[in-house]
Amino acid sequence: MKCKKCGKKAVINMRQHKLGLCKAHFLEWIPQQTQRFIEKYQMFGRDERILIAVSGGKDSLSLWDVLNRLGYHADGLYINLGIDDGTNYSAQSQRLSESFAESHDLHLHSVAIETLEGYSVPEASRLTLRGKGRPCSVCGLTKRHIMNRVAREQQYDVIVTGHNLDDEAAVLFGNTINWAVGYLERQNPVLEARSGLVRKAKPFFRFYERETAAYALLRGIEYIYDECPHAAGAKSIYYKEVLNSMEAKRPGTKLAFFLSFLRAKESGIFANGHTDDRSELRNCQSCGQPTTAPDICAYCRTWEQIRNRQSRIVDERRI
């Protein structure tokens, strides 16, 4: 296959676009498209302060690289969740995030959940009913809380994440087969700021996962290749596999699925639906972050429950 732009040997074939590109043109195409998406979906402007959530994975590091190449001022935020399980997962992903920041002369904030709350996410998940023993629920809640907290404290205008089309399509698929209208209503490439919640944007949401991985590989970005040890058996991965089977037979299925969803929303599919997104936010009485709960936010409630349960275990052992 030849590059559509120059006729040299292509390194990637994006069947959904009927587009094959060589290394040089693919590495030009990704930032050009990213800039187009940033403008089209009014994600952020050149003068705004951007906080990018960095996990050490291919998507977030590639996005940081692209934003940097496009001339945006983006600082990173790495959250160490204390995931080890014999793989050193968190330590390794932190090292890769730090090494990327250092080699590109970029600023990285680091927060360790164990330092902040006293327990790692896997330890915490064993002490709470949230997530039924799986750390993913506590992990997601914790990351969202810390991202918003750091962005507010450090006065960033927008939080960006490296979610790609496969991530978005998998979430959409899961929410559609469950008809979770409230979640469907909230799924967007940009979540506008409101009452203490900092704006969120996903500049990579139209790229397939293969494309972000290819970008990382071709740019020589060292990222954590192994999956989070807790992701095995995750529903989102299963949904991605289902969607990829459809994509293999009909290229463009994933992209059409997500873009048609956005168009349907724009045309008012949820006009008379739930109002979750507009539910009133109050300040958490414990941490001050916005919450729809009447008093204490889910983050504070969960971590308080974790500490209480641990104290009870210690007390019972003393008896």
Partner: peptide
């Protein structure tokens, strides 16, 4: 290239 856990809102 597939990544991701179940920490998204579903």
């Amino acid at each position: 290239v597939i990544s991701g856990g179940s920490d998204r809102k579903t």
